[in-house]
Design a protein around this nucleic acid. Structure first.
Length: 180
DNA sequence: AGATTGATCCAT
DNA sequence: TGGATCAATCTG
């Protein structure tokens, strides 16, 4: 099974559109044991400097610098001292925005939760600033199967209750389960 | 519900 | 420089 590595032009679009478009794409990771592939089924969008749920809402810091970088970079950070979270940087240089990869399906089952995704795919801070358009080490592929708009549910983002009105925005997107 | 764990950020 | 906080997860 093969696919096309998503190019920078894919990521250089409005973040909400990138987020929905990422559903059904394949997260690819080269490890010592071999190639891992997981179908992306849940994401969250973090959009611009005004989004109080976004790490970038407090400006450009050492941590958030990557979010201001070119579209197609990986933003990987450690949370709670134990887990890592993978984001893809979107839109244009100097506009801080990204999409968090929250869940992927893989042959061994479902990695449900951003920490579990990174644990399974062996993703840590060494991949911060990684170029996802390189097609090496870590990238995302299009295998030609489009997830239709009516197959996507939109929900509030997880763990951002501190963000006031921004917490209610339905910027978490998930592929609806297939009906039997 | 509570513990875990360390990077990050900002005010004391 | 200290301490509160955290885009999470696991075990009760």
């Amino acid at each position: 099974m093969s696919g096309v590595t998503l190019p920078a032009s894919f990521y250089a679009r409005p973040t909400l559109r990138v987020a929905r478009s990422l559903l059904g794409k394949y997260l690819m990771r080269e490890t010592a044991e071999g190639l891992l592939a997981g179908r992306i089924v849940e994401v969250e969008a973090y959009v611009g400097p005004e989004d109080r749920a976004s790490h970038a809402s407090r400006g450009r810091t050492q941590r958030t610098d990557v979010m201001f970088g070119p579209p197609g970079l990986a933003y990987v950070y450690m949370i709670y001292g134990m887990y890592h979270c993978l984001n893809v940087v979107t839109e244009r240089i100097d506009y801080p925005a990204a999409v968090l990869i929250r869940a992927v399906e893989h042959e061994a089952g479902l990695a449900d939760g951003p920490g579990r995704v990174c644990r399974l795919f062996e993703i840590d801070r060494r991949l911060n600033y990684h170029d996802l358009t390189s097609g090496k080490a870590l990238w995302i592929e299009d295998r030609g199967v489009h997830v239709r708009r009516n197959q996507i549910g939109a929900f509030p983002r997880i763990g951002v209750a501190y963000a006031g009105p921004w917490a209610a925005k339905p910027w978490r997107f998930r592929v609806k389960p297939v009906r039997p």
